[in-house]
């Protein structure tokens, strides 16, 4: 089967330092893949190349077999990739419903509409999306006053607006109280499984990783050092050493 997402030999340097040094990975349809690693391992750089925010110095990224290397994020979105951010990025001056509506309007290519009020468009669809993430009760609230966990759920709803086949989630549970984390990821996993959406996420809460990932990739100093099922990665001696640190290597 063609992988949903495939990267080969990704390289990115900053001032001569290779932050990402030849990373290759593939993601099967419907798979949940976690990308982990200690500080400075190159997770964010790697992630931002996959979502189009950074241009790789070398390497190829394919989405369902189609080359998307160096495409801007908005083009990647149009090909069916939804995203959530480490620090939530939503439209603070709009209501929850309007945030989702915005994503739907963009998907429907109606952004240049100058006349018909937006509030009369796609309301039912937006409400349906909010219902999927359990946010319908908050539809009318300004998103500037939401609790952080609800903002994360709102982001998820927006990411689902283009009926994606892939979700890229950067630290989906960062900034949340530990108790909420499991619930959010369980919900995400449930939605993704039901719709057959593949998920690639970075994460530093290991409970979340081991509870929800089908497969784990471990980065250190820009290179993949381990890859496999969570249980296998957990006992990998190299991985343990990297996480615990070592002054001599």
């Amino acid at each position: 089967m063609t992988p949903v997402l495939q990267a080969e030999g990704l390289v990115k340097s900053w001032d001569g330092n290779r932050a990402v040094d030849g990373v290759s990975l593939a993601l099967a349809p419907g798979e949940m893949l976690a990308l982990i690693g200690p500080n400075g391992a190159g997770k964010s750089t790697c992630f931002n190349m996959l979502n189009g925010q950074l241009r790789p110095d070398a390497g190829i990224i394919r989405l369902g077999g189609r080359d998307i290397t160096r495409r801007p994020p908005r083009a990647i979105w149009r090909l069916g990739v939804g995203r959530t951010f480490q620090v939530t990025a939503t439209f603070g001056s709009m209501t929850v419903l309007d945030n989702v509506r915005m994503a739907l309007l963009s998907h429907a290519r109606r952004l240049l509409g100058l006349w018909r009020p937006a509030r009369h468009q796609l309301t039912g669809e937006a409400e349906a999306l909010l219902a999927r993430v359990g946010m319908q009760a908050q539809a009318g609230r300004p998103c500037g006053i939401l609790a952080y966990g609800d903002l994360k759920r709102l982001e998820l709803a927006m990411a689902l607006a283009n009926q994606p086949r892939l979700l890229l989630m950067d630290e989906p549970t960062a900034g949340m109280a530990p108790a909420e984390r499991g619930a959010l990821m369980a919900q995400t996993a449930g939605i993704a499984r039901a719709a057959g959406i593949a998920v690639l996420f970075t994460e530093h809460d290991m409970d979340v990783v081991f509870a929800h990932a089908d497969r784990v990739l471990v980065l250190d100093r820009g290179r993949l050092i381990a890859e496999g099922a969570p249980e296998a990665v957990r006992v990998d001696p190299l991985v343990r050493q990297v996480y615990l640190g070592g002054m001599t290597g």
Binding site: M94, M102, G113, P117, R119, M158, N162
Partner: peptide, 28 residues
């Protein structure tokens, strides 16, 4: 006023509120 409340105006506000998110949902 119509334009501000139409999808165009919403998209304009969207890119102001969060350029990152706007780009991520396909807004140029």
């Amino acid at each position: 006023r119509r334009a501000i409340h139409a999808p165009f105006g919403m998209a304009l506000r969207a890119q102001r509120d969060s350029p990152l998110r706007a780009e991520a949902i396909g807004i140029d």
